[in-house]
């Protein structure tokens, strides 16, 4: 059951990611990315990371990607006019190289990674565990990220405000 679920959602994630790269229109790409994120959220659940799965949907799909869609709608960004003109080099070697890279990756991952299997439900990193680690061991990084967010807000406001003239 685990493997079937994994394969289904991995397939969805990969299909959406390919769609992201292939599609001409930015809004289609954005929604494909939302699809990838949704599929990854399910895979996080399979890995027993409940809180991260929820955060993935709330933060990534519900906030960051909405921002992207919002900007695309605001700028009314159309399809890419200029087709990417691949060189003869890319035309001939592109697909074989991709296959070679993925093959190499597969080889290294299969042989280099720890040999273990993951059973659903065996271990769960609950929201409580995450919260405890976040506010004890990782308190300083947590506080620093809040400063980072503040800086980001200020930066965004400064960049996007109307010029006073």
């Amino acid at each position: 059951m685990d493997a079937i679920l994994f394969l289904i959602f991995a397939a969805i994630a990969v299909a959406c990611a390919i769609n992201l790269v292939v599609q001409k229109h930015p809004i289609t790409s954005a929604l494909s990315l939302v699809g990838v994120m949704g599929a990854l959220a399910v895979i996080y659940l399979l890995l027993g990371a409940e809180f991260i799965a929820a955060a993935q949907l709330i933060v990534y799909a519900g906030a960051i990607m909405v921002l992207f869609v919002f900007v695309i709608m605001l700028l009314n960004a159309g399809e890419e006019k200029k087709p990417a003109r691949p060189s003869w080099f890319a035309k001939i070697l592109g697909v074989p190289l991709v296959i070679a890279v993925l093959g190499l990756l597969n080889f290294f991952v299969q042989h280099g990674s720890p040999d273990s299997t993951i059973t659903f439900g065996e271990y769960t990193g609950t929201a409580k565990d995450v919260g405890r680690a976040l506010f004890t061991t990782y308190l300083l990084p947590f506080e620093i990220t809040s400063v980072l967010i503040l800086v980001a807000i200020l930066g965004a406001v400064v960049l996007a405000r109307k010029e006073m003239d």
């Binding site: 493997a3 991995a10 890995l47 993925l102 990756l105 299969q110 040999d115 993951i118 059973t119």
Partner: peptide, 30 residues
């Protein structure tokens, strides 16, 4: 296909997604 999933499958999926991300970064103009 029915039993537990090896860790390497997850890493492989991650690698594929990362590769696609790199491809998108290099290929797209928008």
């Amino acid at each position: 296909l029915i039993g537990p999933v090896p860790l390497s499958w997850y890493l492989m999926l991650s690698a594929i997604l990362f590769t696609l991300g790199v491809a998108g970064f290099l290929l797209r103009k928008n």
